Simulated assay, not measured.
Amino acid sequence: MHALIVTSHPESKSLTNSIALKIGEGLSQSGSHTFEIADLAAEGFDPRFSQADIASHKRRAKTPPDVAAEQARIDRADSLVLVFPVYWWSMPGLLKGWIDRVFSNGWAYDDNFEGKLSKKLGHLQIHLVGIGGADARTYEKHGYDIAMERQIDHGIFDYCGARVISSTRLLEADSRDPLQHFNTARNIGASLFDKHMQVKPTVAA
């Protein structure tokens, strides 16, 4: 099986990108699975939702070529893994813009603008890995963990029918030994296609 691991951090040697690589290492250790890393910052993906995107959304024009290329990458994958630093209790603008443009009407879902919605990504497994500086108590105290789940897991992926299999938060990133997070990342990769992963655990590591 094949996984697409997506990052959007501007620094190539960031903790975020390092964790993405460790997930890939864990996945490849099985010997039977493959992965691709999509580094949106390094690739220069344009996250701005343009007039061309609006025209495509309203079925007045074809999908922009750069968006179609990203959709093709996802179509080749069995699992989509998003690895991102938590900015303002959500994902960075570049990654959100990628979702805004790529998870488009006609590909991720069908909306006929008459109240009927068809979800088209029921075959796709989603794994979320958020990297935050705060601790688990802060997330729980203010409800940030629930807010992120409702916004991202339900608001984005459930709308398209994609299944969020795992949602992991690697916390205290500025103060904790990164080796702990690297080990967790390898374990995520190693278990990515385990058949027993039928429910969505939320892990604050």
Rank of each mutant, 00 (worst) to 15 (best):
L95D: 01
D145G: 12
R169P: 01
W107H: 06
N187E: 13
N112W: 10
A162G: 07
S167Q: 11
R60D: 04
D177F: 10
K200E: 15
D145Y: 10
K119C: 03
F113P: 02
R101N: 08
R169S: 13
G24D: 00
Q125E: 01
Y109D: 09
I146H: 13
I152D: 03
A204R: 11
G161A: 12
A52G: 04
H181P: 13
D111W: 08
E25V: 08
F182Q: 12
M197C: 11
P92H: 09
L27V: 02
A69E: 14
G130T: 06
K116E: 05
A55L: 06
H2C: 00
A173R: 14
D66S: 07
A190K: 06
S104M: 08
V199H: 14
K116W: 04
A3G: 00
Q29N: 05
E11K: 05
P178F: 08
I165T: 08
S28Y: 01
G122C: 07
M91L: 14
D153V: 15
K195I: 13
S191I: 08
E11F: 10
S90M: 09
G24Y: 00
N183M: 07
A77N: 02
L94W: 02
T16G: 06
G143K: 11
G132S: 15
A162I: 07
L40A: 02
F45R: 00
A38K: 05
D39M: 09
P92L: 04
F49Q: 02
R186K: 14
H127C: 13
P92A: 10
T34H: 07
D110M: 08
A41D: 02
F182R: 09
V199G: 04
N183P: 00
P201D: 11
V203N: 11
